[in-house]
Amino acid sequence: MAETMQFDLVSPERRLMQEEVVSVQIPGADGDMTAMPNHAPLITTLRPGVLVVETQKGTQEFVVTGGFAELGEGLSVLAERALPKADVDQETYETLVEEAEAEYRKAKEVFVNEPGPVDDAAKLLADMVAVGTHIGLSTRQPNL
């Protein structure tokens, strides 16, 4: 029997999962990582992507748009928004991309001569667009 750790996935709207898990693949802002029992403690930010949770019963996937992950004795993921992958249809995906596109446009207006925040918003938009490819939907190219 595989070793497990406590995992909690919450978004502002609800708790999506609370269970003992074998591993969790995390779309970290600095790169993807896999959290497993006895992993070194860390805190990382999330980028838009797919969180893959392996339990002893099987695998569950969630689309996240950002947030934080804290790994200690267990793993807590506090997502800005998290949806079961099965619930993300083409319309939902396009809405998520449109929201990221609006944030990018807003950053361009607010931070006119500050490329850092605009670049960050562009990266988040690109990551959100890439989620469509990753989950098998028709990607929506942003109108920049």
Rank of each mutant, 00 (worst) to 15 (best):
M1S: 15
A2K: 05
E3S: 13
T4Y: 07
T4E: 15
M5D: 06
Q6D: 14
Q6M: 07
L9Q: 12
L9E: 09
V10I: 13
Q18E: 13
Q18A: 12
E19M: 05
V22I: 15
S23P: 01
D30A: 12
D32A: 11
M33Q: 13
M33K: 09
A35Y: 11
M36Y: 11
P41C: 02
I43L: 13
T44A: 15
T45A: 15
P48W: 06
L51T: 04
L51S: 05
V52P: 00
V53H: 07
E61M: 12
V64N: 08
A69E: 06
E70M: 07
G72R: 12
V77L: 03
V77I: 14
V77Q: 04
A79Q: 02
E80I: 01
P84D: 06
K85P: 04
E91K: 14
T95Y: 00
L96C: 04
V97M: 08
A100C: 07
A100D: 01
A107M: 08
E109R: 11
F111V: 06
E114I: 08
V118G: 04
A121N: 07
L124W: 06
D127C: 05
V129K: 03
V131M: 06
G132A: 03
G132D: 03
H134W: 00
G136F: 09
G136H: 10
R140V: 05
P142D: 07
